[in-house]
């Protein structure tokens, strides 16, 4: 059984001026445990919404999203929050570190709502991403590349089964972007977590053995183009 299995997933937003706008319409999608897949797509094509639906941050209008054996569509919001905290790691383009927390505290936050804080494990993760000497640094005291490393460590803090990465190199220069991508893929391999990454950057996409075009996956785009 796949780790992630999506069937007839739809998400529609209301337009400010009235009417609705379907953003996601995915008939079928799956990802096996430990697999790494890149989704190609331009900005505004619904990739982030798709990831947010998988993470349970958004509730779908219809369809099924089974992650690690649980159908998110059947869970209430609190249940999806709990499920996300326990099974899913999320790496954002803008890092989304809490500025008032140190690197170590940010990684601990990744554990706090799931399996519980394990300071030694958080420190070991930061050590693994090359920030063993920056545990007490606040985000403003770190370079953008270092901040993304903290975000990677935080996404893996809860030993997730699935890591979602939304344009994780979008705010980094070429060298740091390449390093960050290698790091994400390595640590996911080491921990056995599946990786689903979305990007429009061909250099990033080229690094993946498996890549899929989001435009072919998301029928909402085809409908909008008609």
């Amino acid at each position: 059984m796949p780790l992630l299995e999506i069937t007839r997933l739809t998400k529609t937003y209301a337009r400010p001026g009235g009417g609705t706008h379907r953003v996601v319409d995915v008939r079928e999608f799956s990802l096996e445990a430990g697999a790494q897949l890149a989704l190609r797509g331009e900005s505004g094509t619904g990739k982030t919404t798709f990831l947010n639906l998988i993470a349970g941050i958004l509730a779908p209008d219809d369809g099924g999203i089974v992650v690690a054996g649980r159908d998110l569509a059947q869970l209430g919001e609190a249940g999806r929050d709990r499920h996300r905290a326990e099974h899913i790691g999320y790496i954002f383009q803008t890092f989304n570190l809490l500025q008032g927390h140190t690197a170590l505290e940010n990684v601990e936050l990744g554990m706090a709502f799931g399996r519980g804080v394990d300071r030694a494990h958080a420190a070991a993760l930061l050590q693994r991403v090359g920030l063993g000497d920056r545990l007490g640094h606040f985000p403003r005291q770190l370079s953008t590349g270092q901040q993304q490393r903290v975000a990677v460590a935080r996404a893996l803090a809860n030993k997730p089964k699935l890591v979602l990465a939304d344009e994780p190199t979008g705010n980094l220069d070429r060298r740091h972007g390449r390093e960050a991508l290698e790091l994400i893929r390595e640590v996911c391999r080491e921990t056995g977590a599946a990786l689903l990454l979305v990007s429009h950057d061909e250099r990033v996409l080229a690094a993946f053995e498996r890549m899929q075009d989001f435009a072919t996956l998301n029928r909402a785009l085809a409908e909008a183009a008609k």
Partner: peptide
């Protein structure tokens, strides 16, 4: 608001 949204994205419940 962004910090609170990050917490929510990390799995914090609304009541938290």
């Amino acid at each position: 608001a962004r910090d609170l949204a990050i917490l929510r994205a990390l799995g914090a419940r609304r009541r938290t």
